[in-house]
């Protein structure tokens, strides 16, 4: 059985090490926080916060305390606040160890597309371009194929890029792939997924 959303998030959480400062994107990446267990992980929210806590209880929402997805959140004893210039200073400056992000397409060169479909409504890249250019390690979590069954793991991205040569590791419902010299390397297969199934679902070169 391929992994479901929660299993993909749990697998992504294994990438995070004790003491890391991490930025989690919207969607499946947000679920990663549920699976870090006892590890001391500090979550960054790029609107100006380190040490992001869980959602508040009803009635305890604070309009001055939101995450980058504009959802109400809470603070922790270790929380620090800062302005957007410093926030992206620590991102661009390589101080954030890893970012876990969703994607529309990824390719074998580590190119990532997750912000724009030409001809469709463009909402903007937000902080995604800064994150992929700046953080220590970029981990993409996404479904291996789109809803038409076409591979999202490509030889070359067709959509406008968020960053070129920025992805280190790809976690999909079928398994885990690393971007290496010459293409992608299979690191792990989801339970019950064969190497042939992974290859058949992947347009990119697997080395």
């Amino acid at each position: 059985m391929p992994w479901d959303r929660n299993q993909m998030a749990a697998r992504a959480a294994e990438e995070l090490e004790d003491g890391m400062y991490v930025n989690l994107g919207i969607g499946i990446p947000t679920l990663v926080a549920n699976y870090v267990g006892d590890k001391d992980i500090t979550l960054q929210s790029e609107n100006g916060m380190l040490g992001m806590g869980p959602f508040p209880y009803e009635g305890e929402e604070d309009p001055d305390l939101i995450n980058a997805g504009k959802q109400t959140i809470t603070e922790l004893p270790k929380t620090a606040y800062f302005d957007s210039a410093m926030s992206f200073g620590m991102i661009r400056g390589g101080k954030i160890a890893a970012a876990v992000l969703g994607a529309m397409e990824v390719d074998e060169k580590g190119d990532l597309a997750n912000w724009m479909i030409p001809g469709k409504l463009v909402k903007g890249m937000g902080g995604a371009m800064d994150l992929v250019a700046g953080v220590g390690r970029v981990i993409v979590v996404m479904d291996h194929q789109n809803k038409h069954g076409e591979s999202k793991v490509l030889k070359t991205c067709t959509l406008p890029l968020t960053g070129a040569g920025v992805v280190n590791r790809i976690i999909t419902n079928l398994g885990v792939l690393d971007v290496v010299e010459g293409g992608l390397k299979i690191v792990e297969l989801a339970d019950g997924v064969t190497e042939q199934e992974m290859r058949d679902a992947t347009e990119a070169t697997i080395v």
């Binding site: 991102i91 463009v122 890249m125």
Partner: peptide
């Protein structure tokens, strides 16, 4: 004019 968020913040700073 789309600016990456950190680029916009740094352009202001």
């Amino acid at each position: 004019e789309f600016n990456p968020q950190g680029t916009l913040a740094e352009r202001m700073r």
